[in-house]
Nucleic acid binder design. Structure first.
Length: 507
RNA sequence: GGCCCGUUCGUCUAAGGGUUAGGACACCACCCUUUCACGGUGGUGAUACGAGUUCGAAUCUCGUACGGGCUACCA
């Protein structure tokens, strides 16, 4: 009998979601959906001192933008709540106490100063940072070294204390990671991690295990940075709920920047976003630009993230969310870290710009035009324009440059560039062209081009020069789609108007 | 320092004992195109190093080097 697949994403609300974080959500989500399971989001806010206002909402905004809505969370409800660890505080202590009773953990009364002194006293050249482990615990103030009466007296007096796990000496803890296969550790080398803090809050170590059990998590996936503390979690599962009930683990590789671990600084330094959406740290007021605001489509964003450390074994690279759900498998996630490549990220966006339904593009582009004060009254025209220019747009803001002249005549013409090529013959050509195309009943690019070339032949003027001038009249610059396609969309009246206006300016 | 994880073109990766080591991004060239792109064709370019196992190793083993992570009453 198979346990129902339930996976969780457990962010701490301490800042914006960077690439690695979003990829972790993505893989969790894909795995859950692939196996018809539940995807839940649990907020790990047991360290209130690090809690940043707005960060929790930011996380959910990102999930919404990416289309990775959880089945259960603070915002979505569910039967396993509360989904904020700070609201579950009352429950954790009993598990820690049980560990003490069973001899797997102990009370420790050491003050921060005691700990500092310990680190100083035991520091050697061989050991830069001594840990609170089996070699030092019998020299500290705890329920292992103090008599039962002393401990009781301290507890009764309300002395501040923590509960630490008592790591066994020289045992091997191993587990099967879905990505790395068997990973093993010697228990002597991990320290006696704090499980319950002096303020009564659990640390991450206790909280993940207890919550994963209570929320019936079947698969626990997280970043590689958690690998070193995995033995603590395995042991906790063994002591508390049994190894048979433990979820399956997978540790994702890190996403790297140009020099090592990807950081906010890399983004600023190399000019690419590292956060999903704009994030303004309320403490420092520092703004970090997001992929969304930079002009990435969510479809492209999850696509590029999914392929940063995973592939389906074929040469396919463009995956919709549905494709990803179908093809995803944890076994094919890489074990090595992947360096983020912004050029490739833009390529993914371009691919999605080229293939997304016009309607979706339209709703993404319209607000950008609005922002620039470009009023679109004709949605059908916008749709045609988008279809015409999408191939030359990589990021969404490119659409503004490529399409604004369809909706408003260019306010500046590069008169300087035109002057040397301008003369009365050319002027007469364009006036004649207006006349020539006036009677056209089928106003389309091909007919317009044919007429244009016929007339140029009659007047004996090189088409090349004329084309350049025509583009300047309509667009105001040396860019945009083929000039007769522009003319077609602009329409008869607007075309004549722009030609006449330009003739005056060029004179 | 200790522990853990990792190492195929510049980058993302395929190839789970036998391939001219394949694809994509980027780059270069040509074609298409009287703008800029798209597109098409082709090209440069990689198994970190050293041993071992094997008829045969990118692939298995060991060592070395390099990279990364962890080493808090943070997650």
């Amino acid at each position: 009998m198979n346990k129902k697949v339930r996976v969780r994403f457990a962010p701490s609300p301490t800042g914006g979601l960077h690439l690695g974080g979003v990829r972790t959500v993505l893989y969790n989500y894909l795995f859950a959906k692939k196996h018809g399971g539940d995807f839940l989001v649990r907020i790990e806010d047991t360290d209130q001192s690090r809690y940043v206002a707005g960060a929790e909402e930011y996380i959910f905004d990102t999930l919404r933008w990416c289309g990775l809505e959880p089945d259960e969370s603070v915002q979505h409800g569910g039967n396993y709540g509360p989904y904020r660890q700070s609201e579950r505080k009352a429950g954790y202590r009993q598990y820690a106490e049980k560990l003490v009773t069973d001899g797997h953990a102990y009370y420790a009364f050491d003050t921060p100063e005691d700990l500092e002194k310990m680190r100083h006293d035991f520091k050697t050249e061989q050991n830069h940072s001594p840990q609170y482990d089996h070699t030092v615990r019998m020299k500290m103030q705890n329920s292992l070294t103090l008599s039962a009466n002393e401990v009781k007296a301290l507890l009764d007096a309300g002395t501040r204390h923590v509960i630490r796990i008592k790591m066994p000496v020289n045992e091997t803890v191993s587990f099967t990671d879905m990505i790395r296969d068997e990973v093993s550790f010697n228990t002597s080398l991990t320290d006696d991690k704090v499980l319950l803090k002096a303020d009564g809050m659990p640390t991450y170590h206790l909280a993940v295990v207890v919550d994963d059990h209570l929320m019936e998590i079947s698969h626990a996936f997280r970043g590689e940075e958690w690998l070193p503390s995995a033995p603590v979690h395995i042991l906790l599962w063994k002591y508390l709920f049994g190894l048979d009930n433990m979820p399956q683990w997978a540790h994702f590789p890190l996403i790297l920047g140009p020099n090592g671990k990807l950081s906010k600084r890399d983004g600023a330094k190399y000019g690419f976003p590292v956060f999903s959406m704009n994030w303004t740290d309320p403490k420092t007021n520092e703004l970090t630009e997001g992929f969304k605001e930079k002009g990435f489509l969510p479809e492209a964003f999850i696509n590029l993230l999914a392929l940063l450390g995973w592939n389906d074994g074929t040469e396919k690279e463009i995956f919709s969310k549905e494709d990803l759900i179908e093809s995803f498998s944890m076994e094919r996630v890489h074990s090595a870290g992947a360096k983020f490549d912004y050029e490739k990220a833009k390529w993914f966006n371009h691919e999605w710009v080229k293939r997304l339904a016009i309607g979706n593009l339209q709703s993404a582009v319209k607000p950008l035009l609005d922002e620039k004060g470009i009023v679109v009254t004709d949605d059908a025209l916008l749709a045609n324009v988008i279809a015409l220019v999408r191939d030359r747009c990589v990021l969404l803001p490119d659409f503004v440059q490529q399409s604004s002249f369809f909706f408003a005549a260019p306010d500046t013409l590069d008169v300087g560039a035109v002057k040397p090529k301008w003369n009365d013959d050319k002027k007469n050509f364009f006036l004649a062209y207006i006349e020539k195309v006036q009677p056209l009943t089928d106003w389309n690019a091909i007919a317009l081009e044919t007429s244009f070339k016929e007339l140029a032949g009659e007047k004996n003027i090189k088409a090349g020069d004329l084309l350049f001038l025509f583009r300047m009249m309509l667009v105001g610059g040396k860019f945009g789609p083929p000039v007769f396609n522009i003319t077609e969309l602009l329409g008869k009246d607007e075309t004549a108007e722009r030609i006449n206006r330009a003739i005056i300016l060029f004179a």
